[in-house]
């Protein structure tokens, strides 16, 4: 595992089955200034990442409307690119919010980073071409993990 600090946010890289994953924590700082900085860093990291990205909500207790905005920006950031984005909810409450907002229909949601890495479907999606196929795979993955 490689770790790097990007302006206060700990970004980790994990390699599994020859596939390098970039793990980005979702902003959870208590002060608004720190959160703003973290949001900027997150979007920058997403913009430049060539690896598939895990957006990790483990440190988030709840989601505000600004968080929902940021999530949609993240999805827009990877749209049309070959960068795969998956979410690690970290808690059932976050998972429910991702479902309620229908964001879980746009990217697969997992309970933990280990689940992402252990799930072959996700890696297969990376190799698939076309956004429609990616989307279908995401839904399959979601079904598998939402039991």
């Amino acid at each position: 595992m490689n770790s790097a600090v990007v302006k206060g946010s700990i970004v980790k890289d994990r390699v599994k089955n020859g596939l390098a994953w970039r793990i980005l924590p979702f902003p959870s700082a208590s002060s608004s200034a720190s959160r703003r900085a973290q949001r900027k860093d997150l979007l920058n990291a997403l913009r430049v990442s060539e690896s598939p990205v895990i957006l990790d909500f483990s440190e988030c207790r709840s989601l505000s409307f600004e968080d929902i905005d940021l999530l949609l920006e993240c999805l827009a950031q990877v749209a049309g690119r070959d960068t795969q984005l998956v979410f690690v909810a970290g808690s059932s409450a976050t998972r429910v919010l991702l479902e309620v907002t229908r964001i879980s229909s746009l990217a697969p949601v997992f309970n933990s980073i280990e689940e992402v890495l252990a799930h072959p479907q996700v890696a297969a999606e990376r190799d698939s071409e076309g956004r429609d196929k990616d989307h279908q795979g995401a839904n399959q993955s979601q079904t598998l993990w939402s039991a």
Binding site: S62, L63, S92, L97
Partner: peptide, 8 residues
Amino acid sequence: AVVDLEPA
């Protein structure tokens, strides 16, 4: 799970 919808 019980979630608070208001903050969002």
